[in-house]
């Protein structure tokens, strides 16, 4: 059993988050934290409080503020955390969450120094937790919990899971899937940084094991080999149809395209190379991002 599936069993979740998740917001009282915490509460996410060091004891958005994540775990039984703290302190925030016993850590922050992430990832590997992101839109389980910054209304409940490195491209895919009459189970934004907590393969594995998910949309982009690794895993273990898209076919080599991790480093991490491997592994790859929903509907 991998750490991920173990973690899921312990927390008894749909995929990563559900209506019983007790969510805290790290960086709760900042402008980003405040805005998105409000949006999450409005969606129906069970936000049990937030953490802002030095503001413990106060109330914000009618929820308690804690000084430390440990305090939030002890007093509010928090098991999921979403992080909005600025890049300079985000690596520290991830480690604090793991150390306090948070099971699912979702880091939205973009622009965390690479060496901070190397350390944080190494540190949390000793804990039984799952890190999603950083530099990601978060996770949403349709009709249950939104722990992220995505527009909740796009993700109508249904049977398709989404794994994606990108934010708006995830919304685009979800919208198409919903318009094709299928709807969403859980969408996992894994993030566009070179070092992220949960890989494409691990996220796909979660959705493959989810009984409610009937098909999976896997969206990647240039750079690295997460999609290739996921494709090889799917070939061996896949039980559900997977529709794939890789953004950046027209991106020049050696240039960073917005996301820190979106850079072609060699012959293996171009969009073309990734799509070829994915096709070889039985994934239904679309060349146009406008065809994602249509393709999935055709397969089911």
């Amino acid at each position: 059993m991998t750490a991920l599936t173990k973690c899921r069993k312990l927390a008894n979740m749909s995929v990563l988050v559900n209506k019983d998740s007790k969510v805290i917001v790290q960086g709760f009282t900042g402008s980003e934290g405040t805005f998105h915490a409000g949006q999450m509460i409005e969606f129906g996410t069970n936000v049990v409080g937030g953490v802002t060091p030095g503001k413990g004891g106060q109330t914000h958005l009618d929820k308690p503020v804690f000084n430390t994540v440990q305090e939030a775990v002890d007093k509010a039984a928090a098991d999921v955390s979403i992080i909005f703290v600025p890049p300079a302190f985000a690596g520290d925030a991830i480690m604090e969450a793991a150390n306090a016993g948070i099971k699912v850590i979702i880091c939205i922050t973009e622009g965390i120094p690479v060496n901070d992430m190397i350390k944080a990832k190494e540190y949390i590997s000793a804990y039984e937790c799952t890190l999603i992101g950083p530099n990601c839109p978060g996770v949403i389980t349709a009709g249950e919990a939104k722990v992220g910054i995505m527009p909740g209304f796009v993700f109508e409940k249904g049977s398709i899971g989404i794994v994606s490195k990108s934010g708006t491209l995830t919304y685009e895919a979800a919208d198409q899937v919903v318009k094709a009459g299928l709807g969403i189970t859980t969408a996992i934004g894994i993030g566009g940084d070179p070092i992220i907590g949960t890989t494409t393969k691990e996220a796909v594995e979660l959705l493959m094991n989810d009984p409610e998910t009937k098909g999976i949309v896997m969206i990647g982009e240039i750079g690295g080999n997460l999609e290739a690794n996921a494709a090889k895993w799917i070939k061996e273990n896949g039980t559900k149809p997977v529709v794939g898209f890789i953004a950046g076919e027209t991106a020049p080599a050696g240039r960073t395209m917005g996301h820190a991790g979106a850079i072609v480093g060699g012959a293996d991490d171009t969009a073309q190379a990734k799509k070829a491997i994915m096709r070889d592994c039985g994934i239904h790859v679309v060349d146009s991002p406008a065809k994602i929903g249509e393709k999935m509907a055709e397969l089911l």
Binding site: T168, E172, G192, E249
Partner: peptide, 14 residues
Amino acid sequence: GAGLAMATMDIIKQ
């Protein structure tokens, strides 16, 4: 969004 921006470039090509 960076991912949608790359996807849009690809659409232009197609």
